[in-house]
Design a protein around this nucleic acid. Structure first.
Lengths: 353, 353
DNA sequence: CTGAAAGCGCTAACAT
DNA sequence: ATGTTAGCGCTTTCAG
């Protein structure tokens, strides 16, 4: 294994010079730099990560904690993870993959050991058990999702309330007066992930402002379940003409069922989905939709982490530990929803009484 | 930050004793161990990962390289990643998340720097560019997927050939004589990922042995595309009664289309899918399917890595570098497919000429 | 602009 | 059963 010392000898310089060529923290004369760089090439030198972490007390690793549960928004989770990984690399950082399986303690383990310099937590619940640990951790963290109390935290999420309002606006503009929401599985609401509730809140608020009626029915992804939800909707509100779906696995079944029941989309019923574009465009009728900006969420999370890492330079590791940490800044970055009009929404049908 | 030395002082023992309590590599008397453990608790000690890696030349990290592409088998990829993460933790290892975005060089970077002790590569293609680097890397690697030449490599995958044969067997037993395969997107075949071809090979082999006819049509996931494939199938072989689908995003549209065309499943047409159970059970007709054992693939990959890490103890890092590495063992672990019969397959309809 | 040298916190011989 | 100690490879003062 090639060490920095060997590179130094080979290049005829001191170890520190090689180190500074690598880090760029000191001005090095062009000829020296070139000699060193050539030696690095020729010897095939790779700086040892452990030694570097030990000496600098930075691992250049960001931990990403993902939900183990694989029942919801899988493509979105995946896209966020990939965005985090690529953005982190673009900033010279690596990503450590954690799952919530290990429990909140994982935060302490990874930060305490210096394995990671910072954390990104996905799928944050309203009263997340990891929050206490995040607060006391001496390293930055960014949450994807919005807990109930964001004081002192840094969070990124889609503005789901605005998303709900936007869907209603779109349908209202097309003349729809009776709306229904096919929501997430009941378990999602019980888990208090927040985003589902926020969507409903947005829908209700805007509907109230515009004087529209709304019916909300939770729904598992299965065909059966969608059928049930749909039946109850038309049973209770036969005049429903606009549907908002927030459950990507429900969109396929929904369109099948509507067709089966002789309801044309968008002539009889308009459908707006909250789902990835890929899902929206692969259905029999291309769906008007609000996409979850997964890539941007991942990218923003990393950028916020990087900002906090630069900011906390002098403070964080500073000197001995007993100094009270300064109260942390609260940052809540809600991404604006964007609705793409496709083939599934149209003018509300004339009432034929 | 609490160090091992502080723990040692607090417990009134030497540093090495603390170290050995932690690693269990030496027998420690019960009272001493308890004292040390109490000190560790009281002081809130976490061993420093960098120092440990430097001193032991092991990071206890396994790198997992995932495809960035998010167009295929996303839930499967996700499940593999989660299985790798949890299994690795169960073995006291952490997982570093890499993407193929960085290129094959990532292998060298991560291994060369000692960041990871071993690698798991997902989505391995027949002629994968990472293979040369894997061969020359001084650390173990496990591939998920099967390259063209497996010599000296360790691979895990579903036995897709057997999967193809199994699907045909199932349909043949039910009396079907004219089969069709709705395959992966053309791009998948062009990329030479291997698994898609192997499935077709298995289907063809078994069909030939049993004297059945088979038509294979690639297919994108979209509704349009499935409609096209289906149309061509019934156009060329109107007597087709059994369909094998290897494209999870095609199953929803397929069932819709069949219903729309007045073909009952399974009375007129039997459908076997190669897809996750979750997909198979959420459709309007529960699908007879062969699941891709994603969790097991991830778990096995980690177990193979662990085995190689234990095996390569003396050899790997041993002494100076110029010693020729011994030729590596070839391990190809193909998982047997299991077919679950559900509602989408049944006796072939009687011919009504 | 470059060197010398003191650690960073831990592991693993080598002692006893 | 435990202690002593020499590094592991790098970063970063402190000197020039």
């Amino acid at each position: 294994m090639v060490t920095l010392a060997e590179v130094a000898r080979h290049a005829g310089v001191s170890a520190s010079t090689v180190s500074y060529v690598l880090s760029g923290k000191r001005t090095i004369s062009a000829p020296t730099r070139e000699r060193v760089e050539r030696s690095i090439q020729e010897l095939g030198y790779h700086p040892n990560a452990g030694a570097r972490a030990l000496a600098s007390s930075r691992s250049d690793i960001i931990a990403l904690m993902m939900p183990l549960r694989t029942d919801m928004y899988v493509p979105v989770m995946m896209e966020i993870a990939m965005a985090v990984a690529t953005t982190a690399r673009a900033h010279g950082r690596d990503v450590l993959l954690l799952t919530d399986q290990e429990g909140p303690e994982a935060v302490r383990r990874v930060i305490g050991s210096g394995l990671a310099d910072a954390m990104i937590l996905m799928d944050v619940e309203l009263e997340d058990e990891r929050l206490p640990l995040v607060h006391e951790a001496p390293r930055p963290a960014v949450l994807i999702g919005l807990p109930a109390d964001t004081e002192g935290l840094t969070c990124v999420d889609l503005d789901f309330t605005a998303t709900g309002r936007l869907c209603v606006d779109h349908l209202a503009t097309l003349g729809h007066r009776e709306l229904a929401v096919i929501g997430e599985a009941a378990a999602v609401y019980e888990r208090h992930t927040g985003f589902a509730e926020r969507t409903i809140t947005g829908v209700r608020e805007r509907a109230a402002e515009l004087g529209l009626r709304v019916l909300h029915r939770p729904c598992e992804g299965s065909f059966e379940s969608v059928a049930g939800a749909l039946a109850r909707i038309f049973d209770e509100r036969p005049a429903t003409t606009g549907i908002v779906v927030q459950n990507e696995s429900a969109v396929g079944p929904l369109l099948s069922l509507l067709r089966q029941q002789g309801k044309a989309v968008p002539e009889d019923i308009s459908v707006v989905a909250i789902c990835p574009d890929q899902v929206a465009t692969q259905t029999s009728v291309a769906l008007t939709s609000v996409a979850i900006p997964a890539h941007e969420m991942g990218r923003r999370a990393v950028e916020l982490v990087m900002a906090k890492l630069s900011a906390g330079k002098g403070a964080g590791t500073g000197t001995a530990g007993r100094v009270a940490a300064p109260p942390r800044e609260t940052v809540v970055r809600l991404l604006a929803p964007r609705l793409t009009t496709r083939a599934s929404t149209g003018q509300a049908p004339r009432l034929v009484p």
